[in-house]
Design a protein around this nucleic acid. Sequence first.
DNA 1: CGTTTATATAACATATCCTTTATATAAAGG
DNA 2: CCTTTATATAAAGGATATGTTATATAAACG
Lengths: 107, 107
Amino acid sequence: MTNLDAAFSALADPTRRAILARLALGEATVMELVEPFELTQPAISRHLKVLEGAGLIVRRVEGAKRPCRLAPSAISEIDQWLAMLRKALSANYDRLDDVLAAMKTEK
Amino acid sequence: MTNLDAAFSALADPTRRAILARLALGEATVMELVEPFELTQPAISRHLKVLEGAGLIVRRVEGAKRPCRLAPSAISEIDQWLAMLRKALSANYDRLDDVLAAMKTEK
DNA sequence: CGTTTATATAACATATCCTTTATATAAAGG
DNA sequence: CCTTTATATAAAGGATATGTTATATAAACG
C-alpha cells in the first residue's frame, strides 16, 4: 500500500475525519478523542493507529498519556496528487473557454 | 455515506487513481481504460461505477460506447474539506514561527 | 503496594471491497 | 438476421475493515 492509498483510505472514514477536525483545534489525548464519539476506546485507538500509519497524525508520550496532533506534512502528498487532477480540470475549462470564445467570434 | 466518504474512498484505490490520471489526458471509453490494466472488463466497469458514484467522472452515450471523462466539479468538495486541515496546519506553523521569533529576540 | 486511569492489543463477528467467471443487453456491421 | 463489439450485471470467493468485549501494561495516586 502506498502512502497515498493509506492517506486517502484514512480520510474515507467519517470518524477519522472528525478526529482530524478535532485535532485541527489542537492536541488531544486518546480519552479526549473518545469522549465526543459513541464508540469504545479500543475503536478510537484503532482509528488513531490508522491515522498515524497514514502519516496524518503524530503522538507524544507524556506519562501515561499519548497526546495526538496533526502531522505537519499531513496532506502534502495528497495535495500533490490532487494538483494533477486540478490541472487537468482547469485545462478542460480553458478548452471550454476556447469553444465559447470561438462561438462568440462566429456570432 | 456522504459525498466526502465516497470521494475519498474512491481515491483510496490505486487502480481508480490511475483511471483518473488517464482521464486527465482526455476522454476514454471503457475498453480503452481496460487495456492498460491487468484486470478484466467487469472489474474496470465496477471501478468506473464507483468513480461515477463519487462524482469524480461523468459519462456520455455514444452508440454502444460510453466515453468517460473527469467531472468538472470533481474535487471541489474534497478541496473544501482539506482546506480546513491546511488552515490548521499553517496556523500551527505560524505558532512555530512565533516561538522561533521569540527565541531569536531573547538571544 | 493496591487501585485507578490511560492506552494498547487480542479474539471474534459482521460487513464491505475487489476480483473473477458467466451471462445479459444493445448497438454495429456484414 | 447473425455475429461481433461494447458494456453492464449477477453470483461467488477471499481479503480487509470496523466494531465489540476481554485482557494486558504501565503510569499515577493514595
